[in-house]
Design a protein around this nucleic acid. Structure first.
Lengths: 109, 109
DNA sequence: TTTTAACATTGTAATATTACGATGTTATTT
DNA sequence: AAATAACATCGTAATATTACAATGTTAAAA
C-alpha cells in the first residue's frame, strides 16, 4: 500500500501525470519562472532569490532535470541552468491534447 | 521540516502549483478523461473502469473537487460527476500565462 | 598548493500521499 | 420496516515528498 498503482494506467497517463506532478510545486514553478525571466541563471542566484536551502534547491533542480525541462551547463565552478526549449515543446505536446480533451467537454450535471 | 514553505511563494504560484499537483496523478488524469469521454458518469462506473478501490476513487474525486474541477449532482442514490467547465476555464486562465512565459524563453545554455 | 566558492549528494526528521478495509450515511427497493 | 445499493468518511499501513545539515566534489583564486 501507499504506492501509486502505475500498472493500471497507460504509459501516456503515467508520463503526463509525472510531468504535472513535477510542475506541481511552488518552488519548481518559481525556479522555472526565474530561469525564464533571466534567460538562464546560476544556482546561487536561485538560492538567494527563492529563499530555500542550497540542498533543497539542488533537489528541486534535479527533479526538473528528471523530466528534461531544464539543462545545466558548467561554467567554471558555476552551473548555468536554462529551459530546454526543445524538451519543453515535447512536454507541451503531451499536455495540450489532454487539456483540449477536457476543454471539449460540457457540464452534463 | 517536511512541509512545503508556502509563505515564501506568491499566492499565484501556490495556487498554480496546487492545481498542477492535483492533476499530477494518473488516477486523476484517468478520472477526468473518463468523465470527459462519457460527458458525466457515476462513481460506480469509475471504480470498474479504473480498477481502484471505491474508497480510493472517492478520495481522488474529493481532491478534484477541492480545486473545483469536477462537480457532482445527486441522482437518487447515485452521484453523477462531470467537469465544471466554467471552473476549468478559470484553471486554464491560471495555467496558460505560466506556459506562455516558459514558451517565450530561449535556451541560453 | 592551500583555500575558497559553487554546487551535488547523503542522511534523516517531519510531513504528505496513496491505497484499502471497515464503517457510516442516505435513498431506493423489496 | 428491512435489505440493499451507492457513495462518503475514518483509520491506518506503506511509501513518497520536502527541507536541511553535513559532507563530498570540482574548479578557480590566492
Amino acid at each position: 500500500m501507499g504506492t501509486t498503482k502505475s500498472q493500471i494506467f497507460t504509459n501516456r497517463q503515467n508520463r503526463l501525470a509525472h510531468i504535472l506532478k513535477v510542475l506541481g510545486h511552488p518552488a519548481r514553478i518559481a525556479i522555472l519562472e526565474y530561469i525564464g525571466e533571466i534567460n538562464g541563471c546560476i544556482c546561487t542566484d536561485l538560492i538567494t532569490e527563492i529563499g530555500l536551502a542550497q540542498a533543497t534547491i539542488s533537489q528541486h533542480l534535479k527533479e526538473l532535470k528528471s523530466i528534461g525541462l531544464i539543462k545545466g551547463s558548467i561554467e567554471g565552478k558555476k552551473v548555468c541552468y536554462c529551459i530546454d526549449t526543445i524538451r519543453w515543446h515535447e512536454v507541451q505536446g503531451e499536455i495540450n491534447p489532454f487539456f483540449s480533451k477536457i476543454n471539449s467537454c460540457y457540464s452534463a450535471c
